[in-house]
Design a protein around this nucleic acid. Structure first.
Lengths: 264, 264
DNA sequence: TAGTGGTCTAGACCACCGA
DNA sequence: CGGTGGTCTAGACCACTAG
């Protein structure tokens, strides 16, 4: 009974039972065993099949619902609403982790890096005092050798030394910071809109001035809620698309008017 | 004991206890009673305070976690990570409902509407047979009198009659379809990217050709997973921003039996 | 009306955090 | 080490869906 029935994580840590059950169901959905639009077995049936309580089954299907794979309504059986899992946190926060997951060859290059004082807006976003030091970095990211994204990041001063130790051609900053100082990017807030390519944008991304760019601005924080970085990432049009799946019960995304005070 | 402690919904339906508890905590967070970065009371404390079981408390905080307001790590108290709720399926799926919730004056105008046969791509997205009839609609949406979004929607043939009954200047199609035939948009899949304004785009949105537009393509389905519409919406740059808050806890779940949630 | 998901309880044990 | 969240159980009742 100690065995979870799904083995242990590669890291050696045991997986929760419901995670394994979710994985099994997810696999069945992605393989088409449960077709899109069809019903899932009832919770009671699944509880019997996996020999767990109904609560554990509900945890498993909650996971699938969060991924946008299944939906539910009281009184009716759960149905399959999709076959592809929508983006994970890592995919939204780390360009390299997303690209690698998609099987792309990714590279990055630091073009500029310097310490300076935080301006008022940055101080607010990074929870610093105005005048505190920050590290400003300009990076060009490429996919399959093609430049696709320009990243302007401002790191809080306390993490600057670790960032400066990262080689300029490092692929994944997220991973480097984790391996170096154990920093985990735990929460993110993202603003997505479209902008015209400026002078620097157009030169580095090799597009015409004024051509459309997909912009993702974000603040990333640690587990403790401590802001680590504030970034403005601009993608060449056509190179990247954000995908979101939602349901009337769960939805991670909202629209906002253009003139945001905090995040301009 | 029948009273939920939080009254009933306006519609007359009783609210779940955990929803009321979440509302109370949410209010406290938004009012700054629990500051961003500070800790929430422990689950046990909250269970005592609200006189419910720990499971119910966990459902409540799961709701807040899904909204991106709080985060958690095993062994440590939950912390507040944000003050603004990012929520509502309606906000992502219905332009009018989003705008109205934000307090904006919204309007819409049908510029073109006609039935035709579905092409191959549309048939796939709407789960139709190639050659089945669809209803193609071009709508211009305005905010505060300013045109901000151009909507090119293809409705599955089975809902076409109801769509055709909608007045051309109707503000909310979502609401109209609900009131007319009880149709509920339950699930959505969205693709967000940036494109250049084409000839028609630039004329109707009053922007220069080639200027950046934020594009949201989406498929919306019913509770049963039946596709209703496929739409290509283009926003004038600067008019609208999408916002997402996410967390590394792939695990949107929480609780002992409920579901709910995220995205990322 | 039978089946199903939604809510809730009152326990239990464990892994992890911080002092 | 005590406190905390994460996981899990085995019940219960209700609201809703579907035949």
């Amino acid at each position: 009974m100690v065995d979870t029935g799904n083995g242990a994580e590669p890291g050696g840590r045991a997986a929760a039972r419901y995670v394994g059950i979710a994985a099994e169901l997810r696999e069945a959905i992605m393989c088409g065993e449960y077709a899109v639009g069809s019903q899932l077995p009832s919770e009671t049936t699944l509880a019997t099949r996996f020999d767990v309580s109904r609560g554990t089954v509900r945890q498993a299907v909650a996971l699938l619902a969060a991924e946008g794979l299944v939906g539910s309504r009281q009184g009716a059986r759960r149905i399959v609403v999709g076959r592809e899992r929508s983006q994970s946190f890592a995919e939204l926060n780390s360009f390299a982790q997303w690209a690698q997951a998609m099987g792309y060859r990714v590279s990055g290059q630091v073009l500029e890096q310097r310490r300076r004082d935080a301006d008022a807006a940055e101080a607010v976003r990074l929870a610093l005092q105005p005048g505190d030091q920050v590290l400003s970095v300009l990076r060009l990211r490429s996919l399959e050798g093609e430049p696709v994204m320009l990243e302007r990041t401002v790191y809080a001063g306390w993490i600057a030394p670790a960032v400066e130790r990262i080689p300029p051609d490092c692929e994944s900053i997220t991973q480097a910071l984790y391996e170096d100082v154990g920093l985990v990017f735990a929460y993110g807030e993202h603003l997505i809109d479209a902008v015209s390519a400026g002078v620097e944008d157009s030169r580095l991304l090799v597009v015409r001035r004024g051509s459309p760019l997909l912009r993702q601005r974000r603040v990333t924080t640690t587990h403790e809620g401590r802001p680590v970085e504030w970034s403005d990432d601009r993608y060449r049009a056509g190179s990247v698309t954000f995908s979101i799946r939602n349901s009337v019960d769960a939805n991670p995304l909202v629209r906002q008017m253009g003139d945001l005070r905090l995040m301009s």
